[in-house]
């Protein structure tokens, strides 16, 4: 059974999975220091088999694989942080796992959410909005020509 804060954790994990290691490192400079961590697993790269559905909504099928890097850490304060992120960047996975552990710590959560997660979420949303706006500009605006015939 998911804990009550699962939805919040899912949100920050999805943001961290899309952040480049350099972005994370830069934002962490202006954030409270992360607690020391012990690495429990990884960072290690592997594959996830992506699935689709026949017709879009029918039976599942295996579409092809994607490279993924994962890492698990335990922070000095006892929180276990996980990261799974597309690609093969060990540094990103390590930082994301450390952040996942620290964000579960009520003493650190708000500051890290504000200093790291919120700006990343905003820039990711801005990129999505930019694409949606470009797509919208290519939407065909049909107009109807009045015919000479009266019906």
């Amino acid at each position: 059974m998911p804990e009550p804060d699962t939805a919040a954790r899912q949100r920050w994990m999805s943001v961290l999975a899309r952040a480049a290691a350099d972005q994370l490192a830069e934002l962490l400079q202006a954030a409270p220091a992360l607690p020391g961590c012990t690495v429990l697993r990884g960072p290690e790269s592997g594959l996830v088999m992506l699935r689709g559905r026949a017709g879009g909504g029918g039976g599942p099928f295996n579409l092809g694989e994607m490279s993924v890097t994962r890492c698990t850490v335990r922070s000095a304060s006892g929180f276990v942080g996980h990261a799974y992120a597309q690609g093969r960047c060990a540094r990103q996975a390590r930082l994301a796992a450390e952040l996942d552990a620290a964000l579960q710590d009520p003493a650190l959560h708000d500051a890290l959410q504000a200093a790291v997660v919120a700006p990343l979420a905003a820039s990711q949303q801005a990129a999505r909005d930019g694409q949606a706006a470009r797509a919208a500009a290519t939407r065909v605006q049909f107009f109807t020509l009045a015919t000479m015939r009266s019906s």
């Binding site: 592997g46 996830v48 088999m49 699935r51 689709g52 999505r128 797509a135």
Partner: peptide, 19 residues
Amino acid sequence: LPRFGYSSPADTAAMRIRR
């Protein structure tokens, strides 16, 4: 590379459309 697992089936109805 090792196989970590399988994804949930991708939801193409939720695709962020470019075209």
